[in-house]
């Protein structure tokens, strides 16, 4: 049943448990093995190496999701929203945005499981969403696969209570495609971020927030604290999993102006916090020093490596230092040997 699309915040609804994946468990999207893991505050993260955009990404993503605990049978007939990263696309910097091949492969997997797939994004910096779609190459991919696209910047909105309470915001306006989705799949690019260090699955979900209500950039969120609102949005979107485009990545002055770094990885998991912690380790950055992961750790999911069950490849031999800006607020990320760049 559709949620009411009201302009008036409704009465507070019952607060859901913040236990990682509670929404997924309730919805029956994950198997019992994963349930047991979550009960112990554990999560599985799948890492695939030697990946290319022309390679067998469908198989990689399908294998990764199953290894992460997805119960494919329960996705039949469900609405799945794929959320790539198209913050400020430019043909000059394809390593800034989620590659269309990842979107197509993920859609094929979910369609194969008989889910109803929509791609949605609210580009954070550009009001002309067509421009974002075409500069990123995503438009062509959507057309080729006859995938519907939801422009999350301008859709009608529904009010959802802020279940994180890290920021002062009482709730969020979620676009229709987000509010009605049974599952939101974060499809981020693996990138450094010049304010919060790293952007991957959790930060990418800033892009479900509609510009028509929050602005371009989504300044309402910034003024309420980037880490706090990243945490809050994720806490308020319980049905969320992640497939990270870690093939051609961005280092240095990410998330827009950084340089390309090829890793050849795809990282998958049903717990975005655990996925992001693993992404940090692959970038040779300390997840415990990323402010929104500090908030998420133990509440939205595990970020401690001992609590993350590694599927596929081990991250340790794949880790490669990402350059980060030589700025005081980013220094603490370099727990090990992360490289600074000016």
């Amino acid at each position: 049943m559709s949620k009411p699309f009201s302009t008036v915040p409704p009465a507070r609804i019952s607060r859901r448990a913040l236990l990682a994946g509670a929404g997924l468990v309730a919805a029956g999207f994950v198997g019992t093995r994963t349930v047991r893991q979550w009960m112990k505050q554990r999560a599985s993260v799948f890492v695939a190496k030697h990946q290319t955009y022309g390679g067998p990404l469908v198989q990689t993503i399908r294998d990764g999701l199953i290894a992460s605990g997805i119960d494919a049978a329960n996705l039949k007939g469900k609405k799945v929203l794929l959320k790539p990263n198209m913050v400020e696309p430019s043909r000059e910097a394809p390593h800034m945005t989620t590659h269309p091949a990842i979107i197509l492969a993920a859609s094929e997997v979910f369609r194969g499981w008989r889910a109803s797939v929509t791609v949605g994004e609210a580009p954070g910096h550009v009001r002309d969403t067509d421009m974002a779609l075409e500069e990123s190459g995503v438009r062509e991919a959507l057309d080729s696969a006859k995938l519907p696209f939801a422009d999350l910047n301008y859709q009608e909105v529904a009010w959802v209570e802020n279940r994180g309470h890290a920021s002062k915001l009482a709730g969020f306006w979620f676009p229709r495609a987000v509010a009605e989705a049974d599952m939101v799949v974060s499809l981020p690019k693996m990138k450094t971020h010049h304010w919060v260090g790293v952007t991957a699955a959790m930060k990418n979900l800033y892009g479900v927030i509609p510009g028509i209500k929050y602005g371009w950039p989504k300044n309402v969120l910034h003024h309420n604290g980037i880490p706090e609102t990243v945490f809050d949005i994720n806490a308020s979107l319980p049905r969320t999993i992640a497939i990270v485009d870690g093939i051609d990545c961005m280092e240095g002055d990410g998330p827009i102006m950084g340089t390309k770094k090829t890793m050849g990885l795809v990282v998958i998991g049903t717990n975005p916090a655990a996925v992001d912690a693993t992404v940090c380790r692959l970038m040779d950055l300390d997840p415990a020093q990323v402010p929104y992961l500090q908030l998420a750790g133990g509440r939205l999911g595990p970020i401690d490596d001992r609590l993350i069950s590694q599927q596929g490849e081990k991250w340790q031999p794949l880790a490669s230092p990402f350059q980060i800006l030589d700025k005081p607020h980013l220094q603490r990320l370099r727990k090990n040997k992360g490289v600074l760049v000016t």
């Binding site: 400020e88 430019s90 550009v126 009001r127």
Partner: peptide, 18 residues
């Protein structure tokens, strides 16, 4: 750009609509 000129010393890209 949508409104910034440079951030952390890096000049941003221009866009047509703004």
């Amino acid at each position: 750009n949508y409104g910034n000129t440079s951030v952390l010393g890096q000049m941003l890209r221009p866009h047509i609509q703004p």
